[in-house]
Design a binder for these strands. Structure first.
Lengths: 157, 157
DNA sequence: TATTGTTATACTCTATAACTATA
DNA sequence: TATAGTTATAGAGTATAACAATA
């Protein structure tokens, strides 16, 4: 008969497998982004700015789920390298509208292709349907977080 | 028509969804483990020791994918609380055999039940088949990591 | 000479409090 | 008074180098 894996109990929990899978993903994507001098967070910010011209830092911090003080350093780095520009918003002079530069867009296009290749590497062996289900399952878990299930049940009566 | 999500590009990458899902899981499991004064890593170590009596610290470090110096503090904490014991291995007096105490086993049983409830909460809305596929997909991604695909292809010719 | 566990330490990521300039 | 962005800082989590005891 087949031997039980020594971590079989923990393997039943999605958090255990997710931590290990995420470690593998992070190592691979950071290697894929190294030629562009990008990390996961700087890449994510660059993609969000390309897809949403004029985005505010506070909105970006919300989307990437990082604290505003930590985002400042990320934006500083992208701006210093001439990949994005901070432009004062016309309607609210406290805020910045974030915009990609031509240089930033070229780096974005190349890095996005590299990350797509990374995604294909990491999900090799999964069918398209299985990949789609994985993405949906992760989203479901994210949405299930932060819910007070007990009071939800009680108020739902 | 439906509006495109602002992070639609990033949502296509499993790493993006996984980071967000894992953040939700970590927050929920830490809340579930707080009554037992356990964290994710101390819980995982306790489960591994219960399931594998006599496990060595070096083996546990390999399984949990944490560096030996960092594991020392985890084991110190569990031992100080009387949940596990370090016993010198008879065949190798450099090594410790890790064993759970009766107190540790009782805490393990209660915490394991709490984490099972946490898993059910976080994966609510997924069918059993979808949950099983999620676990398998995460394992596949973990296994796809750390492989030099180019040389694998070349040596495979 | 190599390995187990340990100490010390550094580096990254993340979180919070307090400040500025605008609103 | 509240908000956008910033500064400074503290706390986790994670990584490496070097050591003592044993193999």
């Amino acid at each position: 008969m087949t031997e039980r894996e020594r971590d079989a109990t923990l393997r039943a929990f999605s958090g255990y497998g997710m931590k290990r899978a995420f470690n593998a993903i992070q190592a691979d994507v950071n290697a894929a982004l190294a030629p562009f001098d990008l990390r996961m967070v700087t890449f994510s910010a660059l993609v969000m700015i390309v897809d949403n011209p004029g985005l505010r830092q506070s909105q970006l911090a919300d989307f990437l789920a990082i604290e505003p003080p930590n985002l400042v350093l990320v934006i500083d780095e992208l701006e210093r390298r001439g990949l994005i520009a901070r432009e004062r918003a016309m309607d609210d002079r406290r805020a910045y509208a974030l915009l990609v530069t031509p240089t930033g867009r070229r780096l974005h296009d190349a890095a996005l292709a590299a990350v797509k290749a990374h995604e294909a590497r990491m999900t090799a062996g999964l069918t398209d349907d299985e990949h789609a289900l994985l993405i949906r399952a992760l989203r479901r878990i994210e949405d299930n977080g932060g819910i007070d299930h007990e009071s939800a049940t009680l108020s739902g009566t």
